[in-house]
Design a protein around this nucleic acid. Structure first.
Length: 575
DNA sequence: GCCGTTTTCGGCCCGACTGTTTTCAGTCG
């Protein structure tokens, strides 16, 4: 039994119950349990007692345990026997929720997408109470588009779309200020749509301009405070929501629509205990009937004597703390170096000098040049001779540059566990990264023994993108991350938080565990182009999500401190 | 179904928008 199946089973139970008209809180309890399971990084086997997880209680835990033990869930099977399973996907269609799907099933005998589609074509839907001509049209249109677009898009793709929208908004007139909100602002790995908050005195004027944006595929809704569209950008259709508020309401709205939902719920509960009510328009005081608005999100938190929480950390867990208990979150300004990047020597786009200049412009004091090693022929990996030549050049450049370059390499861990260069070669390199780029399909034992050989090599300083995943595109190889972290701690090898939005590898939950295990983290962009050095912001965002201290991030260390660290034997590095 | 420095019962965030109504239910975030 794998975790994904358990999550899907819990979700299916919730959906069946929704259609049956079960108590909504019961329904959401099952949904919440599915999310709780999804959020913890452990595999199913690694979770000892599911009931201990936040959001999982006796009832949902028993479903999980039964699935683990027998591979089946009695509750699920009973529900499935009472309703056609073709009904489940119907809830993904717009305008259809549990109540309406239940009605369609009971009154029209609709059992799946196909019968629903036929009912639309036969115009049977529009005569149902609660439905109408427009509902029928919308449902039919959505069925035709079903499966042609993904439910969630990766942060990398969404960020590109957001950049485009940002440029459009900048050009509009009548906007006082605007900002990205939602899961993209929280640096979630995947997002469903892109949310923006716009402060304006003239919502009508903004609305008109928004509805004239290039590339609108469909207008979902256009009210006084909300414009919701589907935007075609290149070959992608992405949902975009704009909220129009007054400037006074801006901070409250931004907070509200940044979420997460769970974070908002916690804030609202807290407010309620104080006799106040939180909405996207501010904080309503039930005693004096006044609604307080705030200049900034920070002011909002401080109103409740809470420390500011950056968007990435708004998880609805334990991030709400009193001002006096504020712990500093890492920010891009703390970053002094980038320790993984490529140049034209292998598959990068720029020379060493160009990368160095770009890094210096970002205010970095030092960087590591880490081109690919010889095994990676497709990336023009460097032979021992070329690597030595490159390092010679780097040493010479250090005399003329105002940023310090560390000699480095991103060395392949070969399919048989051998490293791509001999120790004799590695011992003179300032910063040695090891990583896997081949034979992804190997069994976990093989992958782990490859990683182990790199971790326990005396010269390997860092394991880059440890799981090899590409968000939304590739799962990565079979890594036991807990074991990897344990070995990293034992061997004195740091782990990477690859900041590329395609990777974000390791993910936040693992980064947290690594730091708790005493392993320092390097947030690196792995940039193959100088513009990609900007990806550092995503990595720092994930670090904030992980809630790790600034000092656990190697890139925040001064050049001197890093060099001293790297000169230590690995066994003496982690203290 | 879950949860608990007002606890083992009685709450569970709050509001917008749409399409259907003729004052509101359902959906959505």
């Amino acid at each position: 039994m794998d975790k994904k199946t358990v999550i899907q089973t819990l979700e299916a139970i919730a959906t069946y119950m929704e259609i049956k008209g079960e108590n909504t809180f019961k329904v959401s309890a099952y949904k919440k349990a599915a999310r709780a399971l999804e959020t913890v990084p452990e595999t199913l086997d690694e979770i000892d007692e599911a009931v201990k997880l936040d959001g999982i209680g006796k009832g949902t835990a028993s479903v999980i345990e039964e699935l683990k033990a027998t591979g089946r869930s009695t509750l699920h099977d009973e529900l499935a026997a009472s309703l056609p399973d073709g009904l489940l996907p119907l809830l993904k269609l717009p305008t259809l929720g549990g109540k309406k799907v239940g009605k369609l099933y009971q009154e029209l005998g609709i059992t799946d997408i196909a019968t629903l589609r036929q009912a639309c074509v036969d115009h049977k839907i529009q005569d149902m109470p609660g439905f109408g001509v427009k509902s029928e049209e919308k449902i039919l249109a959505a069925i035709e588009a079903f499966n042609t677009r993904p439910e969630r898009i990766s942060i990398a793709v969404a960020s590109k779309a957001a950049d485009y929208i940002y440029e459009q908004l900048k050009k509009m007139s009548g906007i006082i200020q605007f900002e990205l909100a939602g899961s993209l602002r929280r640096v979630e790995e995947t997002v469903k749509d892109i949310d923006w908050i716009i402060a304006t005195e003239h919502p009508e004027q903004i609305k008109d301009q928004l509805l004239q944006l290039d590339g609108i595929a469909q207008v979902i809704g256009a009210g006084d405070t909300k414009v919701s569209i589907e935007l075609g950008i290149e070959d992608l259709v992405v949902g975009v929501d704009f909220r129009l508020v007054t400037n006074g309401e801006f901070a409250s709205a931004l907070l509200h629509f940044t979420g997460s939902k769970e974070h908002n719920v916690k804030l609202r509960q807290l407010a309620k205990e104080r006799g106040e009510q939180v909405s996207e328009y501010g904080v309503f005081n039930k005693e004096n009937g006044e609604t307080k608005v705030f200049e900034t999100e920070e002011d909002f938190y401080h109103h409740f004597d809470l420390a500011y929480v950056p968007p990435e950390a708004r998880l609805g867990k334990d991030e709400l703390v009193a001002i006096k208990d504020q712990k500093p979150y890492p920010s891009v300004a703390d970053i002094q170096s980038d320790l993984h990047m490529h140049t034209v020597w292998s598959d990068g786009a720029h020379s060493i000098q160009e990368m160095a200049h770009a890094a210096a412009e970002k205010g970095y004091t030092h960087i590591a040049i880490t081109d690919h090693s010889q095994y990676l022929k497709v990336a023009n990996g460097l032979t021992e001779e070329r690597l030595k030549e490159q390092h010679q050049q780097i040493k010479e450049l250090n005399n003329s540059l105002d940023i310090h370059l560390l000699t480095g390499v991103e060395m392949d861990i070969l399919p048989d566990g051998q490293l791509d260069y001999p120790d004799e070669m590695l011992k003179d390199i300032d910063f040695v990264i090891a990583s896997i780029h081949s034979s992804f399909q190997q069994k976990e034992e093989v992958i782990m023994s490859r990683l182990k050989s790199a971790l326990f090599n005396p010269h390997v300083d860092l394991i880059a993108h440890p799981t090899g995943r590409l968000i939304g595109r590739r799962e990565g190889y079979a890594v036991n991350v807990k074991q990897l972290i344990k070995w990293a701690a034992e061997s004195g090898t740091a782990l990477e938080l690859n900041a590329s939005p395609q990777r974000l590898d390791l993910k936040a939950e693992w980064i947290k565990l690594a730091v708790e295990s005493g392993v320092p983290i390097a947030i690196n962009t792995d940039a193959h182009h100088k513009d990609r050095l900007a990806y550092i912001q995503y990595g720092v965002g994930i670090a904030r999500k992980a809630g790790i201290p600034i000092d656990s991030i190697m890139n925040t260390w001064s050049k001197e401190r890093l060099i001293t660290y790297l000169k230590l034997e690995k066994s003496k590095r982690f203290k």
